[in-house]
Amino acid sequence: MTSETLPRVRAGRTPGTESRGKGLLKHLLIIAFGFVMLYPLLWLLSSSFKPTEVIFREPSLLPSKVQFDNYTDGWTALAHPFQHYLLNSAVIAVLAIIGNLLTCSLAAYAFARVEFPLKKLWFALMLGTIMLPIHVLIVPQYVLFSKLDWINTILPLVVPKFLAHDAFFVFLMVQFIRGLPRELDEAARLDGCGHFRIYARIVMPLCLPALATSAVFTFIWTWNDFFSQLIFLTDPDKYTVPVALRSFMDAQSGTSWGPLFAMSVVALVPIFGFFLAGQRYLTRGIATTGLK
């Protein structure tokens, strides 16, 4: 039964465990299950190319006639053309990535490599904030941001990222930096490097996998984030993709599923892109920290 622990064994044919036929059957079952799991997504994609009145009458996944009307209709169905909302979302996502990578890595370096008073206390506090539900903070944060006149700006969504608010990533990077050989830092110290140069020239380049994981997750979480964007962005001009989609859904009242599906697909494409490009980092990230 060595095959249990050797996932990379070619074709899974460790001697005496499974016959070819049985292996094939297993693959077929897994594929069938995967197909059922992905069916809603495939159906969404296919329906986005069908006229609304056909969506519910034509069960086939392959549209009998591919047409792009849903995309052109949906794109202009809201107060602004859809690229307006895509841009709003993208600006927030890009700034969130920059903020998280910069400030989380700074904090992580301090926790992993610098000795300073009260370090253990701060580290414990940092871990404590990871599991803190956003709901405990959201009301006072809303009060604070509205006093600062930040409601309906991107600031409530972006500034926290520049203050290393996502402690998940601090933790992820601390774990990663702790795994790097200390000899490298010490050699650099002997050559006269201070902490900032060690951070920038040695540790950060070695941290690229952790940074990539953080970037991919930051993007996906920010792009999908609905709760805080719903609360902080109430002006339709400032709507991001999720909030715009939701208002689209409320407005259409069941008559134009086609365009709504088309824009839903558009909203999912960037996540799918990041998923394809960053798979390696995603699975590694979840496996080490349990992120979703």
Binding site: L102, T103, C104, L106, A107, Y109, A110, F111, V114, E115, F116, K119, W122, L125, M126, T129, L132, L137, Q141, L144, P160, F162, L163, A164, H165, V170, G194, H195, F196, Y199
Partner: peptide
């Protein structure tokens, strides 16, 4: 140095957490 590295996080901890 440690506290300098930690400054953004500390500000965030106090102000928004």
């Amino acid at each position: 140095t440690g506290y300098l590295f930690l400054t953004p996080w500390l500000i965030g901890l106090v102000a928004i957490t």
